[in-house]
Design a protein around this nucleic acid. Structure first.
Length: 430
DNA sequence: ATTGCATTAATGCCTCGAGT
DNA sequence: ACTCGAGGCATTAATGCAAT
């Protein structure tokens, strides 16, 4: 009987990040922990160059920069690229001073605009999110921000005003934003203009506070599909530190929609579906339809993957074909990513991938093992994985760190996450 | 113009261990 | 006792489009 337990370790989730300055600017549930990244990059010499091919909210890039290390981060979501870069740049005292003056003008302009017909986003059933009164006010505030700064596209001190706006729209909405399966509260609370103004200024003040702290490293986020062989110049990386999407049919766009519609990164439902289809593990709208008849284009995949997909198909549930194809495509895409990653790596480069396992109709999908198999067949060495934490849903769900090296002959094993409890459960499970 | 079927966008339900 | 979650699902609502 096992006497040691794997803990949930909320310090290894986004929760830990909320109070950490820039890391807490905008919450996204599928974000991994600052602490985890710190443990991975701990003690790296400063000339190390990190790649995060699945940047998301740019946790890796920001932690690296805060530690004086440089990183390149890739993502396919234009909103997240904008947000990530805004999180990683420095803001001077004079810029911030100027921003505060501009905001005073924005507030006055908002009061003038509130009775006009301002642009509102094309969000489905928008009155479910905000009542008419609240909508009028945040619509006016948005218009005042546009008049003052333009749409949020540049990485400039005005980004702080826009990130605060994104926080505001969530905090005034009736969305239950505490879960990836986002849904709604029954009541929509109306806000007065004074309440919204003071809430906005409060959020902005906190964001400005943390923006003033200088960071020494250079991190940047770029529009790159990590499955493609494209790269930024001819840089090569010594470390890959990332948390890719998990094979869990959670839609990223589902949670990002409010931000992206209000900032005009999204205009129609169709665009949302197309963007999710581009993402590895995407499931929203048309992505699900396209999975029904999706087939891999002949790339050689590990036998272990075929076995898992076969098991899912064999369950003969209503959507077995869909789920099987979903898993198949997820690992196909991850394999393609690892394959095209190789030319970007320095000799001896170390990979650290934080991933979660899943189960479909009771069939366990051992993400960490399947990725290890891909790494092995692609010529990586020193391959292994360790449990990082237990997830707080089904008991068989964990988060893992999958690690490997590229063209390294020496034995390598990461020093992190090797608690006795983790080793024990690893033995018991497999 | 209307109907009916297919597709896809959007949201809710049920679960259950762990932290507080 | 109460809250919460990188969880999976099914179901419902809205939209598109071909057939009448």
């Amino acid at each position: 009987m096992m006497d040691m337990k794997i803990k949930q370790r909320s310090d290894y989730t986004f929760k830990y990040n909320k109070k950490l300055g820039r890391h807490g600017w905008l919450r996204l549930t599928p974000a991994y922990s600052v602490k985890l990244v710190e443990e991975i990059i701990d003690n790296l010499p400063e000339d190390y160059f990190i790649l995060d091919p699945f940047s998301g909210t740019a946790t890796t890039g920001l932690v690296a920069a805060e530690h004086g290390i440089s990183a390149h981060c890739f993502d396919i979501n234009p909103f997240l690229i904008w947000l990530g870069n805004s999180k990683c740049i420095n803001y001077s005292y004079s810029e911030i001073k100027e921003l505060k003056i501009s905001i005073d003008k924005v507030i006055i302009k908002c009061q003038e605009l509130v009775d006009e017909d301002n642009w509102l986003p094309n969000i489905h059933n928008i009155q479910r999110w905000w009542c008419e009164q609240t909508l009028k006010i945040i619509g006016a505030l948005r218009q005042a921000l546009v008049n003052q700064f333009g749409e949020p596209r540049e990485n400039h001190v005005s980004s702080l005003a826009w990130i605060s706006f994104c926080r505001l729209i969530i905090e005034t909405s009736s969305a239950a934003f505490n879960h990836v399966s986002m849904s709604f509260h029954n009541e929509v609370i109306p806000f007065e203009i004074e309440q919204i103004e003071s809430l906005y200024l409060e959020i902005l003040e906190a964001i400005i506070q943390s923006a003033g702290e200088n960071i020494s490293g250079n991190s940047s986020v770029h529009f790159v599909d990590s499955r493609e062989p494209t790269s930024i110049g001819d840089f090569q990386y010594s470390h890959v530190v990332t948390s890719p999407p998990y094979p869990n049919r959670i839609s990223y766009i589902r949670e990002l929609r409010p931000y992206m519609y209000w900032t005009k990164f999204l205009d129609t439902a169709r665009e949302a579906g197309e963007l999710d289809w581009k993402a590895i593990g995407g499931t929203w709208g048309i992505a699900t339809s396209r999975l029904q008849d999706w087939e891999s284009n002949g790339i050689e995949l590990p036998e272990s993957l075929k076995a898992v997909v076969f098991d899912i198909l064999q369950t003969k549930e209503k959507n077995s074909l869909l789920m099987g194809n979903y898993v198949w495509k997820y690992f196909h895409d991850m394999h393609l990513h690892l394959q095209n990653l190789r030319p970007r790596l320095k000799k001896g480069a170390v990979l650290s991938y934080i991933v979660g396992n899943s189960s479909f109709y009771g069939v366990q999908v051992h993400t960490e093992q399947l990725l290890e198999d891909s790494l092995r067949s692609l010529g990586f060495t020193n391959i292994g994985s360790k449990i990082v934490r237990k997830r707080n849903s089904k008991k068989e769900l964990f988060e893992y760190c999958v690690y490997a090296t590229w063209q390294e002959t020496r034995k390598y094993e990461p020093a992190y996450f090797n608690s006795r409890a983790a080793k024990q459960i690893q033995l018991e499970l497999f």
